[in-house]
Computed example of a mutant assay.
Amino acid sequence: MTSSYYPIHEKAGFDADAYAEKIERALRAGDKVKGPYLRRYGKELDAALDKKFSGDAELLILALMKTPLAYDLEQLENAMKGMGTDENTLIEIICSRTPDQLKAITAHYNKDPKHAKCPLEKAIAGDTSGEFKDLLVALVGGSKDGGHSTNDVQAKDDAIRLYADGKAKLKGGAGSHFLHILATQNMYQLRKVFAEFEKLSGTSIETAIKKEFSGDLEKAYLTIVGATVNKQKFFAEQLHASMKGFGTRENDLVRVIVARSEVDLNLIREEFLHADFNKGKKTLEDTIKGDTSGVFRDTLLAICAGNQ
Rank of each mutant, 00 (worst) to 15 (best):
A138C: 15
D145K: 04
S143W: 02
R161P: 07
L182F: 11
V153S: 13
G173C: 02
S149K: 13
H180D: 13
L162M: 08
S149M: 14
G146Y: 02
K171M: 10
D158E: 15
R161L: 14
Q154C: 11
L162D: 00
R161T: 15
A164C: 10
L170G: 15
A138Q: 07
G173W: 05
F132K: 02
L182D: 08
V137K: 11
R161F: 07
D145L: 08
I181A: 04
A164S: 12
D145M: 12
D158K: 11
G175Q: 12
S176N: 00
G166K: 03
G142D: 13
D165R: 05
G146R: 04
G147S: 15
Q154I: 13
V153E: 15
A174G: 15
L136N: 03
L179A: 05
G142H: 09
G172F: 12
G172Y: 06
H180K: 15
L135C: 00
G166C: 06
G172R: 10
L170Y: 06
I160M: 14
T150A: 10
K167I: 14
K133G: 03
K171V: 11
H180P: 00
H177N: 14
D145Y: 08
A159S: 11
A159W: 10
Q154F: 07
K133Q: 09
D157M: 09
V153F: 00
G142V: 06
K133A: 02
V137H: 04
D165C: 14
S143L: 03
K169C: 15
V140Q: 01
L136T: 01
K169N: 15
G141F: 12
G147Y: 07
A168T: 11
V140F: 01
L136S: 02
T150Q: 08
A164L: 15
H148V: 07
Y163W: 09
S176Q: 00
D157G: 01
F132N: 09
F178D: 03
S149L: 07
G141Q: 05
L182M: 14
K171P: 06
A164M: 10
N151Q: 15
K144G: 10
G172N: 06
L182E: 09
